[in-house]
Amino acid sequence: MRVNCVGAIIVDDAGRILLIKRGHPPGMGLWSIPGGRLEPGESDAAGVRREVMEETGLHVEVGRLAGTVDRPGPGGVTYVIRDYLATVAGGVPAPGDDAADLRWCTADELARLPLSAGLLDALTGWGVLPA
């Protein structure tokens, strides 16, 4: 079974990317970009806005698709994850919902964190890492 998911690649004016620390499986304890499963009938953009709000307290404007990855899940599920560029439009950052923590990271800091499998390779391959 394929499950549609979305993620948000949010970079601030200082060139740092927003990461959340997963509070629940899959990936509990690992750092990743905000995101999750789409709800039935939900558009990708609406899903990105909802997931970012739930996990970070931030309102975002959704930009272009950065890339798509397939990740294995439990019970033979495949998560089809479409990651979009997004910019903060308001709100106060605070971890919520599935996020145990959040932080803004430079590219150097990203390389030293325990990240979700394949995240660094995907962001690098798509050319969306902060300089």
Rank of each mutant, 00 (worst) to 15 (best):
D70Y: 06
P95G: 00
V77P: 05
P40T: 05
L58Y: 02
A131K: 15
L123V: 07
T68W: 05
P93F: 04
W104T: 11
A66G: 06
A8V: 03
R16P: 03
R103A: 14
A86I: 06
E109L: 11
L115S: 10
T56F: 00
I81T: 07
A46D: 14
G35W: 12
W104S: 05
A111C: 06
L120E: 02
P114C: 04
G118T: 01
T56C: 06
H59T: 14
V52A: 04
D70E: 13
L18N: 05
A45K: 11
A45N: 08
E109R: 11
R22L: 13
E51T: 02
P26F: 12
P25Y: 10
A66I: 02
V62M: 05
T68L: 09
G47D: 10
D13I: 09
S43P: 09
V128N: 12
P130F: 15
G15I: 05
G36A: 07
G29N: 03
M1G: 15
N4D: 15
I33K: 00
S32K: 07
A94E: 10
L119G: 02
P74L: 13
I10K: 06
A8F: 00
T124L: 04
V60F: 12
T124G: 02
L110N: 01
G76F: 15
V52L: 06
C105M: 07
G127P: 09
A122P: 04
L30S: 03
I17A: 14
T78G: 05
L119Q: 06
D12N: 15
M53E: 12
D83Y: 07
